[in-house]
Simulated assay, not measured.
Amino acid sequence: MKVIFAGTPEFAAVALQALVEAGFDIPLVLTQPDRPAGRGMQLQPSAVKQYAVSKGIEVLQPLSLRMDSKDPQRAEEARAAHQRLLSTSYDVMVVAAYGLILPRSTLDIKTCLNIHGSLLPRWRGAAPIHRAIEAGDKETGITIMEMEEGLDTGPMLLTERVAIEDSDTTGSLHDKLAALGGKMIVEALNKMRHGELEAVVQPEEGVSYAAKISKEEAALDFSHSAENIGRKIRAFNPFPGAYGVVNGVNVKLWGAEVLEGGNAPAGKVLSADAQNGIVVACGSGALRLTELQKPGGKRLPAAEFIKGFPLEGLSFSV
């Protein structure tokens, strides 16, 4: 089978690698344009582009695939990309975290399969891994679906579940799901080749949407429950990084344990020493902070952090 692949971040690169290693012919890869990154804000290629280039696969990076865009440059690039797709011999397009909307004109060329990081119809949208952890879900998974114009509304072809552990962060869960997605798309295409894929319409009940993560959400309010705050810390690790404000300083919190708490005011630092660790009262319960980072500093275990940033007697803002 000849497969055109569309994707951008590491989650997608893992799937592309799985397809290449399984022997599929990849004549073309679509990925988003290079973006400024790092302290020098130099243009950086996506993870998908880096892998494709390393394998000698042609890469196309249009700003948009919508030929009706009001932006002349985007419309022109979309038309060029559309003609490139029409002139390429392929059997199916595989999409994983591409980041661009596929218009009807693209979907109509060939079947498009999507690797989605949730158990649809729960967590349709941009940030299913973050939102599953933030909501306290006990499980998530990968859904291979056939794409249509709606937001992650297409029929499901394969589904596999993954337990969300209490220790999981978005980073650790991402890696599990990326590996699973790569395995499952290979399985799906092999079944497709033999006419063994069965489409199941998504149920109307249980629909939820995983809105894109904003940096503004990372500010923690310690008047909330310790359980709620702990989930946010795990959900926003590694991006955008949850933080609490203490003495006017934004302190990033990368790890925490939920404890039972007393009646201390929310945000008050109950202890900050090597023996008891950094314990902060919340609206209900308390959190033992295990890994922190001050602006311009490194991520440090709590015992190391308090050597350079004493917290005893202070309070986090609520």
Rank of each mutant, 00 (worst) to 15 (best):
L289Y: 05
E227I: 07
H194R: 05
A303Q: 14
A303R: 15
V186Q: 04
V246R: 02
G195L: 04
Y243F: 15
K307I: 01
H224E: 12
V245W: 05
R234M: 02
K268E: 11
I213A: 03
G308M: 10
Q293N: 07
F309D: 05
F305W: 04
Y243S: 09
W254E: 02
N228K: 14
V201R: 10
M192S: 04
I229A: 13
G297N: 06
Q202E: 07
Y209I: 13
N237D: 11
S225L: 01
E257W: 00
S208P: 04
E304I: 06
A219K: 13
V245H: 05
K215S: 13
E260D: 14
S284C: 00
H194Q: 04
N237P: 02
R299N: 02
S225F: 01
L189W: 01
I229L: 15
A264E: 15
L300S: 09
S271H: 00
V246A: 11
E257T: 07
H224Y: 00
L220S: 09
P295F: 05
K252D: 00
N250E: 14
W254M: 07
D221L: 05
K212L: 10
E227L: 13
E198V: 15
W254R: 09
E312W: 00
G308R: 07
T290I: 08
V186W: 04
W254N: 02
E204G: 13
L311T: 10
I306H: 12
A274V: 15
F236N: 00
Q293A: 07
K191I: 00
L292Y: 02
I233R: 05
N190L: 05
V186R: 06
F236Q: 12
D273N: 15
V280W: 09
P203A: 08
A210P: 01
V186P: 07
K232I: 03
S223R: 13
F305M: 12
A281I: 14
K268W: 00
D273L: 09
A264R: 07
G230R: 10
G296R: 08
P301H: 10
E187S: 05
K232E: 03
P265N: 06
A303F: 10
A274T: 14
S223W: 00
V201I: 10
A286F: 05
N263E: 14
K268A: 12
V201H: 00
F309H: 14
E204D: 13
R288Y: 07
E257Q: 11
F309G: 02
T290G: 02
G277K: 11
